[in-house]
Design a protein around this nucleic acid. Structure first.
Lengths: 127, 127
DNA sequence: CTGTATCCCTCCTGATACTG
DNA sequence: CAGTATCAGGAGGGATACAG
């Protein structure tokens, strides 16, 4: 693959806006988790290892605000809240999975590049 | 599109590792900028609007470490440094562009969802 | 021109405690 | 169960000054 068109500033901004939403520590993991179907708050919390209660709430609110996630409250005792991807959420899953597949295919090359870079940096520092 | 397989923790971690690299404020913009071909430090700085000198340096170092970008120093006066995507970088550009195209296609729906959510939040607060 | 070094401040994040 | 409230620590990121 070789160089293509020159970057468009407007395009950059829009892309970055979506990426920013998607690029934080938890959003992608939550969306992928919900790709498995409707789940409750605690189920997601268990599935996404390491996420705190606060951050799960914040993340879900953000995804709901952007229309990726549908939140359904059942007025029962104890309360029950279901989260599910909207049609938009499922559509987002497609390019997200593409990126995920790419990561799974190439992460070894990234790891190798990192190791090589760090080794070189270490050697330079030792001179 | 409907629910698929259950999320795999290991897969989540690997994907998140790549996304984290890609998901910061500047990396994607720089990679897309370099998709236009080899460029000098100052050229990138001008193309990526709003980036500071410090953050461009930090971002380029990160991309170089992960093997996405090749850095070439010319020992001239004044110094000249060229940056170019590696083959791995160009490959990353593919799923990145897919996500970018998705963003361009659907950002209106995201904006609409945000507006609706904010309007509703405002109405709820006013009651 | 292409960086490095420093200061500083904001925001993200986790931990903890409390509510309906 | 599903949150909200509060606080503190640390990383991210900008401004500035300086160096090769």
């Amino acid at each position: 693959m070789k160089p293509t068109a020159h970057p468009d500033p407007e395009r950059c901004r829009l892309v970055n806006d979506i990426i920013a939403l998607v690029g934080d520590k938890w959003s992608v993991q939550v969306v992928m988790c919900l790709g498995g179907g409707q789940q409750r708050f605690t189920e997601i919390r268990r599935a996404v290892e390491g996420i705190s209660q606060k951050m799960l709430t914040v993340t879900l609110r953000g995804l709901e605000r952007d229309g990726y996630v549908q939140r359904t409250v059942h007025a029962t005792i104890p309360p029950r809240v279901d989260y599910e991807l909207t049609p938009l959420g499922y559509e987002l899953l497609v390019p997200l999975k593409a990126l995920g597949d790419w990561a799974l295919t190439h992460y070894r090359r990234v790891a190798a590049a990192r190791a090589a870079y760090d080794a070189r940096a270490l050697a330079d520092a030792a001179e």
